[in-house]
Amino acid sequence: MILYDYILSASCYKVRLMAALLGIKLDLVAVDFHPGRAHKSAAFRDLNPAGSIPVLVDGDLVLTESTAMLVYLAQIAGPQWLGEASPQSAARVQNWLAFSGRLNSSLGLARLHDMLHFPADITACRTAGHLCLRELEAHLTQVRLEGRIFLEGTAPSIADIACFPNVALAPDGGVELRDYPSVRLWQRAVRSLPQFIEMPGIHRLHDLKPAPHSGAAA
């Protein structure tokens, strides 16, 4: 399975993270998104006319939306990540996948503006980002009142993986997360998942491993 990938992209990381959590090995093809704009090249648009990344190719299957990639990976290797079997749960997961698109066009675009000089109305992006974070915080507050921590049901799902990257990277776009305590604790739960992987801007939880100097030592 080939992932056309860019290391700094939140949407590409979404797919790398899901694959890592599921134990799926991806063949990564690095796309020179910045500064090369290789995703807009004629050759790349032959693969994906939209000229966007990531692109996932598995045999005849070509996927160009990261949320669809999460569904595919989970169907193959971990259907429990698709949410619970009820119509309500399935629909709520879809709601979060669509919501992750709003995170990408607000928090994600603010980050591309600040990091890679993308043209954007930065004030509008940040305002829309805070609105999304308030929705997330309200939901996660409710979830915690019920003794849960993940977005849907009692276990982590593709909903969490779809929403996590752009939230965790929000400070790169000038959106601080300090007023969202439940979002902070939810992020910690995602980062604590076995086989969690990092990307530039999202480091692993060092505290989950013993201190390197505490053993037989130096």
């Binding site: 300090r178 305590p181 439940s182 604790l185």
Partner: peptide, 11 residues
Amino acid sequence: DLPPANVMHAD
């Protein structure tokens, strides 16, 4: 909002 083994920012 601050369980054991956690750190947060405060103003």
